[in-house]
């Protein structure tokens, strides 16, 4: 697996911490997922933040703060600086949202914020589309990791544009990439890993499953299976059948 800003992750799964039915379910789901990264956010202090932080520290995983809900580069930059102080990490999952319905990244705000934050010593994980030109610009601006979406956040649709993601993967073979958002099923995670992505990031698919703990385990197995499959160099698909049992030696009956 490619390294994320010099960090080699033990597993290719990054898991969100929101929307679980109870903190104990969050903890159990994390254990079953074997996730190596937990995403977190900052919100107005209302008393629950400190206990939540204790739970996250207890998970023993890397922490990736996000700038969720930010609709401008200015907001995202300020949020990132606040997150760096609270979570004591240079990692930032940079979200600059461009549309309320699709939660699609605003490419222009994202690029501006990436440039400012990279110059300020942040290790930026930009949440982006599969757009290859934008990806190149983000790398030029100082990002060393890309997080293309699979589908809109929380939609569970899987890989909406496999062609775009495949060409993005091929265009930047050395860049660590995480498929972030839109995954609904373990097969989507396996799909992403089979395409050669380095990790998957998901939240709703686990947290909102009927049994989040079992679903966390299913995603762990799928992501691992996909990674193994990619490393094993899959066969090329073909249009016509090809017998797998030897033709030579077949009886004449």
């Amino acid at each position: 697996m490619r390294e994320f800003y010099g960090v080699a992750l033990a597993t290719p799964l990054m898991l969100g911490t929101a929307q679980y039915p109870a903190p104990s379910v969050l903890e159990a789901a994390f254990r079953q997922s074997q996730a190596s990264v937990a995403t977190v956010s900052l919100r107005r202090e209302a008393g629950a933040g400190q206990a939540f932080w204790d739970i996250i520290r207890g998970l023993g995983v890397h922490v990736l703060p996000n700038t969720a809900g930010c609709h401008s580069a200015r907001e995202a930059i300020t949020t990132a600086r606040m997150a760096r102080e609270v979570f004591e990490t240079n990692w930032i999952k940079l979200e600059v949202i461009g549309h309320a319905d699709t939660l699609q990244p605003d490419p222009f705000g994202l690029l501006a914020a990436t440039e400012a934050l990279a110059a300020d010593g942040f290790e930026v994980f930009p949440y982006t589309t599969e757009d290859q030109v934008l990806a190149g610009r983000l790398l030029d601006a100082g990002a060393r990791v890309l997080m293309p979406w699979g589908a809109p956040i929380g939609s569970g649709l899987g890989l909406n544009n496999r062609y775009g993601l495949r060409t993005l993967r091929a265009a930047f073979p050395d860049v660590p990439m995480v498929i972030d958002a839109g995954l609904g099923l373990p097969s989507h995670a396996a799909d992403a890993m089979e395409l050669g992505f380095d990790a998957v990031l998901l939240n709703t698919a686990v947290a909102q499953a009927g049994d989040p703990v079992a679903m966390a385990r299913a995603f762990a197995m799928a992501a691992q299976a996909g990674a193994l499959a990619h490393a094993a160099d899959p066969m090329e698909p073909r249009e016509m059948a090809a017998p797998s049992t030897p033709v030579l030696g077949q009886a004449w009956l």
Partner: peptide, 10 residues
């Protein structure tokens, strides 16, 4: 004045 604390996030 905004005072922000750790919170759940995706």
């Amino acid at each position: 004045l905004e005072v922000l604390a750790p919170m759940q996030g995706g």
